[in-house]
């Protein structure tokens, strides 16, 4: 298994993501945004960070980077599994590979907190996760409030595209457990082989970091049962 990790100018979670893959015994392949062709890889991760300094809108400029045409093509022709974490999620939305958009947190503040995420619908290809499972992972963002066009929210739920919701530790989803003002507490969504989430699984890889649920999450995405 070879997983490409794409660095854009301003990505800052690329090394952490490569380390997380190494910890799972998976070969990570560093990729550069100027590449126009993908090397042989089985999966792709767009890591977190602040590509292009978040200029214009978070992820908007990176969404037009040369490598993104190849990413789009790999999704269309090979159903390439692609995971966008935080800024990577923003890039996938801006490219139109995931529905919706990420707008500024309602508090106006950068949020750096631990959150409980409830699995709503398990995306294509994930193994060992089921509806109602809870994952503890950190968020770190300023533009993380998920938004959709009016009338589109029920479609997202009906089509099973809502992946994660911010919940309380018991899995209850309500306004008080919504850290950033996301519509319906949405923290992650999927579309076909493409998945995006604001929380950072690569920062929850060991108990001494606060949680091992990121390890469980990445293994699920990689299609491996967690022991």
């Amino acid at each position: 298994m070879r997983v490409g990790v794409i660095s854009f100018p301003g990505s800052n979670c690329d090394d952490d993501t490569l380390n997380a893959l190494a910890a799972l015994g998976v070969e990570g392949v560093p990729l550069w945004y100027q590449q126009t062709e993908l090397p042989p890889v089985d999966r792709l991760i767009l890591p977190g960070g602040f590509s292009y300094g978040d200029y214009l809108r978070s992820g908007a400029l990176a969404a037009q980077a040369p490598i993104m045409a190849s990413v789009e093509q790999a999704i269309a022709t090979q159903a390439m599994p692609v995971l966008g974490i935080c800024n990577g999620f923003q890039i996938l939305c801006e490219r139109g590979l995931l529905p919706g958009a990420l707008r500024p947190n309602v508090s106006g503040e950068f949020l750096c907190t631990w959150e409980t995420l409830r699995v709503v619908s398990v995306p294509q290809g994930f193994v060992g996760l089921k509806t109602g499972d809870l994952l503890r992972m950190p968020i770190a963002h300023h533009e993380g409030a998920f938004a959709v066009e009016p009338g589109f929210l029920s479609t997202l739920f009906d089509q099973g595209q809502v992946f994660l919701q911010y919940s309380d530790p018991d899995g209850q989803v309500h306004a008080l457990t919504n850290p950033n003002g996301s519509v319906a507490n949405i923290a992650g969504i999927s579309q076909g082989s493409v998945t995006g989430l604001m929380p950072h699984p690569e920062r929850a890889m060991a108990q001494y970091l606060g949680s091992v649920d990121g390890r469980r999450f990445l293994k699920a995405w990689l299609g491996e049962e967690d022991q």
Binding site: R103, P104, V106, S107, G108, A145, G181
Partner: peptide, 13 residues
């Protein structure tokens, strides 16, 4: 401009 239904925290502050 933000659409009317989109909250603008910078504008609120």
């Amino acid at each position: 401009a933000w659409k009317e239904e989109i909250l603008d925290p910078a504008g609120q502050s």
